[in-house]
Amino acid sequence: MSALVSDVGTRTAVAAANLVKVYGKGDTAVRALDGVSVAFEAGKFTAIMGPSGSGKSTLMHCLAGLDNVDGGTVHIAGTEITSLGDKDLTKLRRDRIGFVFQAFNLLPTLSAEQNVLLGLELAGRKPDRAWFDTIVDVLGLRERLRHKPTELSGGQQQRVACARALVAKPDVVFADEPTGNLDSRSGAEVLDFLRMSVRKLGQTVIMVTHDPVAASYADRVVLLADGHLAGEIDNPTADSVLSALKHLGA
């Protein structure tokens, strides 16, 4: 209910209008996104869900400026990004977007701390030390800062990735199957943290997942099927998501 009726002070963090993305040409062309229009509120945790091939990852790539679109527009905090060149897109990602990927989030040659601060360094920005400490403590990484990624468990690696995504205080954090490679306990920790960063720190998080349990941590779930928007669920539970997916024929 709250997602559709704008509360006073709610802003749109990310908005897509009529997004079209086509892979291939001619007979083999696949419309991965076929006119998707969707808005993501600031300060909310939104999950994008859908069966395999529904276009959820493509949507995230397009929203985050990782991939170019064949039609439509994407706005991030008021900036139209589909017309930006590679350099500006890179700058935008660096300054205004945080990423948590499924795997290979960290550079093996850098320590945990260096990985966390990498984005800021690339931007040439000085880290906010107090903020850095807050994040590190919340994520329980204090003891691990000097370790190389190979010396960290999968869950720890994902928490380092979360810390890196948040340390620059981005307009939006995109998480692509952040728990896909984790056991359920480690996965729950990461999801807890993402939810907390939204509730307590006012962060905006958009997460792609195929796991109904993971989706249940979100404030809102956007359902995607065959490149079209196929509905949404506010305040989802694992059950409500599962039944909605079943409904989609997944």
């Binding site: 990782l66 890179t90 990602r93 550079l107 690339l122």
Partner: peptide, 16 residues
């Protein structure tokens, strides 16, 4: 390749 892609996602420009 993956590492390079990650760096690009995190804001390393092509030139860099």
């Amino acid at each position: 390749t993956r590492e390079s892609a990650l760096l690009r996602a995190l804001g390393l420009t092509r030139g860099q």
